[in-house]
Write a protein that binds this DNA or RNA. Structure first.
Lengths: 190, 190
DNA sequence: ATTATTATAGAATTGTGATTCCACAATCAA
DNA sequence: TTGATTGTGGAATCACAATTCTATAATAAT
């Protein structure tokens, strides 16, 4: 270890995330990330090897944040119906707050890169499992008798949330998203 | 009109669809489409103007086919529960049959291009509305009293189907997809 | 048959963007 | 302080892919 980094890694990753998220992986140029972050391309290559390496770091971090979002949304717990409603509302809320209706970087990347890049599938799959687990852990009433049911329900809720995200990308207004979230939540047996 | 086209347009569009679907728009080169279809790049440019023009034709056609798929799935009608189950099962079935777990070109393109290309959002949005309408038209029991309810249900079913597609991209096995479809279907009030 | 028009093949152009190189700066160990 | 090591800025590669160009072929209309 000789000279230390000058750039702030969190800053760089944050900038890169924005660009990848809005433009997609392939259409994003490193030069743009360099420009927007103020970090030179040499430094980026030295630190991450190549564009793909940088993307993977971005992607992993984003996915981790997403799991945290879900955990926070269901932190309180309650009846199946309450948990479901809070979870879906939180997702709807998040979509509504995104500029350009850009949805979710995980789903966008899965769409763009999933077929040809197993790593992306792997990370996304792990993330999805973590989300399902987070939801499921708040659905069980502590008895454990209906666990199979609870995990199926959790999986379906996460799937529905991903449908909500897709719908948000179509330009659905905030109210519509929230109404769909509420309707699905109330369809869950209390 | 002097000389006539030599290439079969349906063939070309079909080849192009495969490539765009597997690789994504940006990562696809016209040369690859030319090679796989046997049509020269000059002919493609003469016919569609540019890569984007070709893509739009591919995309519109794909979306139309998708609506047709949904219409066929719900053609028979029945109780809300039956229609929902048949619809979701048909989507699950379709996903299961895709090579490379490539999902749905509409959702993939929405993920890759949605933020920066309003045309894509517009076409996808129109397609989505057509799907919802197709489902809804089979949900009404002919009375028309609960139409608001029926259209909300249709919208949620379509959203859930898109969630299923996302899950399929994660590598979920066929059985899991079918189970989720069945569970969601049976959750719909008969 | 001749002409005007559109299609095709394949080479040439051009721009972009990933990646590499090189010279120089900063820091640690001695 | 000196040398080894790692970061940085910016120019230089290097490949690839979108698009255009040029010549030639096919066909409809006269």
């Amino acid at each position: 270890m000789a000279r230390r980094r000058e750039f702030d890694e969190d800053q760089l990753i944050a900038s890169a995330t924005q660009v990848f998220w809005s433009r997609g992986y392939t259409a994003t140029s490193l030069q743009e990330i360099a420009r927007r972050s103020g970090v030179g391309t040499s430094s980026i290559y030295a630190a991450y090897g190549n564009k793909w390496g940088l993307f993977l770091v971005v992607f992993e971090r984003y996915c981790a944040d997403r799991v945290a979002l879900v955990r926070a949304a269901v932190a309180v717990g309650g009846s199946h119906r309450e948990v479901a409603t809070r979870f879906l509302s939180a997702i709807a809320e998040d979509c509504a707050g995104q500029p350009e209706r850009r949805g979710c970087l995980m789903l966008n990347s899965l769409g763009e890169l999933g077929s040809e890049h197993p790593e992306v599938r792997t990370i996304a799959s792990r993330t999805n499992a973590a989300m399902e687990l987070a939801v499921r852990s708040r659905l069980s009433n502590g008895k454990g008798g209906d666990d199979i049911d609870a995990s199926s329900l959790a999986a379906s809720l996460v799937a529905f949330s991903q449908g909500l995200i897709a719908v948000s990308r179509l330009g659905a207004d905030d109210e519509r998203l929230h109404r769909m979230a509420a309707l699905a939540g109330s369809a869950v047996a209390a």
